[in-house]
Nucleic acid binder design. Structure first.
Lengths: 138, 138
DNA sequence: ATACTTGCAAATGATTTGCCAGTGT
DNA sequence: ACACTGGCAAATCATTTGCAAGTAT
């Protein structure tokens, strides 16, 4: 909230709603879930406003989003609670890992390719151990 | 084409168009580019048909697609000519690498996380060497 | 001849934009 | 008071689907 005020933006009810939803969730949420419109509930904020606010908050570095597959983007708080994702191409399962679990991988990518890799926007896609065992290379 | 016939599908002009476009291109193409409708040209095949054919060809393993950012999916031939992608979050540049350039990374991911990673559907996103040098961690 | 395919139109899903009324500071 | 915001409707973009007519085998 401080960051919002500092940037000259206002702290409105709709923005509170977005931030509270993201801080309460232990999974990344779609814009529609954040609006409150899923599970047959009546949306507590307009979808368009949610998207606008997510964009604002993302620009301020308070929020980030991932694309786990072909569906809607999923939003989560940035910083402390952020996770990185692995999704299985075969069974569709997705699993989160703490950022430091990928530190070695990032280091190797930096050494091999000169890239400072982030796995926060797109997940690492592949075969999980079980599916790889069952189907081999795919 | 052989694979098409073998699967009971037909070899139509529209399918030839898709495959020829993908084999001729040295960059992955959007469905719209494949249809021929970009650059003010008149499409030579309907977009819906292109999408249907891309899906068919992808299911047969002849084609694959990537999402380099938020825009349309980009299609390329699978197998021999396929590349993997690195995109820079900061300058937007994207660069392709031969699949084996990521073998070491894949090996490490297998060892650390038990995943058989593929970087063919989503790129590795991060900061390229230049942007990392200019802006640090981001 | 028959099942697979196409083009065209309309539907869908996600996200964005225009506009005017409402509200935080 | 005034610029920033929210809600609502309509627009946009990428992709999918229904259907009748066309075509590869």
């Amino acid at each position: 909230m401080v960051a919002l005020r500092a940037s000259g933006r206002r702290v409105s009810a709709a923005r509170r709603l977005v931030l509270e939803a993201l801080y309460a969730a232990d999974e990344p949420l779609s814009a529609e879930q954040i609006a409150g419109g899923l599970d047959g509930r009546v949306p507590r904020s307009d979808l368009a406003s949610v998207y606008r606010n997510l964009e604002t908050l993302e620009r301020l570095g308070l929020v980030q989003h991932v694309h786990l597959g072909h569906g809607a983007g999923l939003y989560m708080r940035a910083g402390g609670g952020a996770r990185e994702y692995l999704v299985c191409d075969s069974c569709g399962a997705h699993r989160t890992v703490e950022p430091h679990a990928l530190d070695g991988v990032r280091r190797l990518i930096r050494a091999d390719l000169g890239y400072e890799a982030r796995f926060s926007h797109f997940p690492i896609v592949g075969l999980c151990r079980e599916c790889a065992a069952h189907r081999g290379g795919g």
